[in-house]
């Protein structure tokens, strides 16, 4: 179990003036599974390569259990990185691929064989040790790459986009496999992804990095309920933003006054709420209720998406198809905002 601290880690590539990673500081609990989330080019892979020792940092530090590792060679850090495209050595069979790290540590052949067979059981690929990488499916290759990393019992495991090359039905299987192995072996694991869904389903904590800077570091649900700013909210699929000002537990805007949670910030800000947390009714309720007109209605199978106008503001709502069965485009309805679903971000 290893506690990882990243302290003011910065990377400026030669020939560039803008940092690719700017003062990143996060604490990663030992044995946890943490996602570095951001669009491509945000600096997340750079971070991972610096932790692995495959790229040198410009400044800052990385410590494992309070000991800096930055002067260690990559092979001595106890960090293993699993690349997105698996990178199984093409001329080695599965046995030699998985056993590679042990061979580098001069473990004897018999033991390597033994441990590879055990590892193959763990990743649910029994009896495939003689196959060549190109004879495996994408999902199998991924599991071999994972086994190859886990067999050396790293202190820290780094995964690059672990689910993104997989079909939808394999994603959950792989997610469970990664979670189970990571939990049972207690390996502190960091993965990078550009896909917020991947981050949310897999991680204990998510660090959102935009343009080389850490935006927010929290549990996954917080990014939906209490995003730190509009860019963060938008990254997580937020669509509803209303300008106004927050004062004494109320948010005042051009479309009305809304009661908001006490912990919200004060002053000029942006009100946001998830499309799925809005209630629709035919009559005005007592709290946070406004009249809205349906301007578009799209049936999506298990849910219905509505585009509504409140005066000049346009908002998106996701409703239960049964609730809005009889409403049509052009009809006026009431919408209620439960105070606990509202959140105010700085402008």
């Amino acid at each position: 179990m290893t506690h990882v601290s990243i302290k003011k880690l910065t990377k400026i590539y030669p020939g560039s003036t803008e940092p690719s990673l700017d003062n990143l500081s996060i604490e990663i609990e030992s044995g946890s599974l943490t996602a570095l989330l951001g669009p491509s080019g945000c600096g997340k892979t750079t971070t991972m390569k610096m932790i692995a020792g495959l790229l040198s940092q410009t400044s800052g530090d990385v410590t494992f259990d309070n000991i800096s590792i930055l002067n260690e060679k990559p092979e001595n850090r106890g960090v293993v990185m699993v690349f997105q495209n698996h990178l199984l050595f093409p001329y080695m069979n599965v046995l030699d691929n998985i056993g590679f790290g042990l061979k580098m540590r001069n473990v004897d052949k018999e033991e390597i064989h033994q441990r590879v067979i055990e590892m193959l059981e763990l990743v649910k690929l029994p009896k495939l040790e003689k196959r060549m990488p190109k004879e495996l499916s994408g999902g199998q290759q991924q599991r071999v790459a994972l086994a190859r990393a886990l067999i050396v019992q790293p202190k820290v495991l780094l995964l690059d986009e672990p689910l993104s090359n997989l079909d939808a039905h394999l994603r959950f299987e792989m997610r469970d496999l990664i979670r189970n192995l990571q939990q049972s072996m207690g390996i502190t694991t960091i993965f990078v992804t550009h896909d917020q869904e991947e981050a949310v389903v897999l991680a204990d904590k998510v660090a959102l990095i935009l343009d080389g800077k850490l935006k927010q570091y929290d549990e996954p649900d917080v990014f939906y309920k209490r995003p730190i700013d509009e860019a963060t909210a938008r990254f997580f699929g937020g669509q509803n933003f209303i300008n106004g000002a927050s004062k004494n537990g109320l948010f005042e805007s051009s479309v009305g006054k809304f009661k908001i949670p006490e912990i919200c910030m004060k002053g000029k800000g942006i009100l946001t709420f998830r499309p799925e947390n809005i209630q629709i009714s035919n009559s005005k309720s007592t709290l946070n209720s406004v009249k809205a007109k349906i301007i578009e209605k799209i049936f999506l199978g298990t849910q219905t998406r509505l585009k509504l106008s409140i005066d000049s503001e346009i908002i998106q709502v996701i409703a239960n198809p049964n609730e809005v069965e009889n409403t049509e485009t052009g009809v006026e309805i009431f919408i209620n905002f439960p105070p606990s679903s509202l959140w105010v971000m700085p402008k």
Binding site: A52, G53, P74, E75, V80, M81, G101, M104, A149, L158
Partner: peptide
């Protein structure tokens, strides 16, 4: 260089 990176992170030194 990714193949070599993988090898390094699995514990191979530069020569290996």
């Amino acid at each position: 260089e990714d193949y070599e990176s993988v090898a390094r992170s699995l514990g191979a030194n530069r020569w290996q």
